[in-house]
């Protein structure tokens, strides 16, 4: 099968809307199709990776653990926009998985190299 570079661009916070969760479901399928998958997190999308989700009180399925499971699917390219983290009082230590923190321009450059860009 043809392998293409798929990047998932995440710019939305979790739980307020379903986009983050359903995006993650596509990521897993993309990995199952053995595509070259990467994820970019910018703007409120960086909130998806904040560790310590506890969704008991809102009775919604939490999905923090799914980010940790991405490695099992060979999805290891997680890029996080530094400015977005900073603007939200966060550092890489606040995130639930290891990521590559980079400038927004660097993420933009990676976007240019993709075959398919998916945003939700």
């Amino acid at each position: 099968m043809t392998t293409k570079k798929f990047m998932f661009v995440n710019r939305k916070a979790p739980y307020g809307t379903i986009y983050a969760l359903e995006s993650l479901e596509v990521v897993l399928i993309g990995a199952a199709f053995e595509q070259d998958v990467s994820l970019a997190f910018m703007d409120d999308g960086v909130y998806q990776l904040k560790k310590g989700h506890n969704t008991k009180g809102i009775d919604v399925k939490g999905f923090e653990r799914t980010y940790g499971a991405l490695e099992d699917y060979d999805v290891t390219k997680l890029y996080v926009d530094e400015e977005s983290l900073k603007a939200r009082g966060l550092t890489a230590d606040d995130l639930c998985v290891p990521v590559e923190v980079m400038s927004r321009a660097a993420i933009g450059k990676l976007m240019e190299e993709q075959d398919v860009l998916l945003s939700f």
Binding site: R11, M111, E112, Q114, D115, V116, L117, S119
Partner: peptide, 8 residues
């Protein structure tokens, strides 16, 4: 263009 990005 080779790709398009929808900034949703």
């Amino acid at each position: 263009f080779k790709t398009c990005q929808s900034w949703l």
